[in-house]
Amino acid sequence: MTQQTQTSLEGNILPTSIAQVGIIARYEILNYFRSRRFFILLAITLLISGLLTFAIAYEGDSIAGSPPQALPFYATYWGFASNLIVVFCAVFFGGDAISGEFQNKTGYFLVGNPIRRSSIYVGKWIAALTASLIMMGVFTVICLGNGFYWIGTSIPTQFVEAISFTLIYLVAALGFTFFFSSLFKSSSFSILVTVVLLLFGFSLIDTVVTNLIHVEPWFTLSYGSGIISNVFTIPYPQHITTVSFGGGGRGPTLTEYIPTIPEGLIIMVIYFALTAILGLLLFERKEFN
């Protein structure tokens, strides 16, 4: 992006493209804070956190052991719901971020100004990430609050790793939803496609590819994000596990693939890089007609 600053005849000083990214992000965040969807997702996050808190309070022994152990506690709390909250954030904040500009004609208000489309795209992406981080922050605080209450202040390193992996998954999932949002002009269609893929589609592909074709599903985002819950297992699960049924090892076999941590990270980073670049290119080429 150009770093130049230009002074106009009217005394205006055109901000750099990077500064314009910040302006778009700031106003998008303001728009999110006033939107119904932000508060709906906040309510969903609080509901999920509340249900988990309730479950820990009443079934604490079976979940975290007796006396309660940090690792099973965080594995259950974080591993159970963080993926779901990431998917909700990506869909709520990214699902129609770009398509909405076309469908609602709000893009006409922005695009005719001296601003690159890439600045609009990146600014909106940063705003969606910020809104999502607020949700993740709320969930993390409630999770830690429960942990401190039941177990004490010791935090296992696996939990810190899981939070880091979740943030990378969030970045990748937002890149993915922004891509579909750029691909379609209809908000509802782009939201529907991302919801189906992130909630069910990828998991279904994982199952089918693993069990029927016996291939490691390294090409799905959900497979890569598996490291978030797997990191709580000590030792870390084997990459490939094959179980034979009968026949002294000659019967039918079932293979389970578990992504290694580097593999999971690479999958998520590549997903982000590819979908972000493709989404941006699509938005650059897309016409307001």
Binding site: T2, Q6, G107, R116
Partner: peptide
């Protein structure tokens, strides 16, 4: 685009403004 449109204002096809914004904010 940035340089070309720097001194150009436009109104094309009755744009919509984010409903949550006030005119001052927009």
């Amino acid at each position: 685009k940035r340089l070309a449109l720097e001194h150009c204002g436009s109104l094309i096809e009755s744009p919509e403004i984010y409903p949550s914004f006030t005119p001052k904010e927009a």
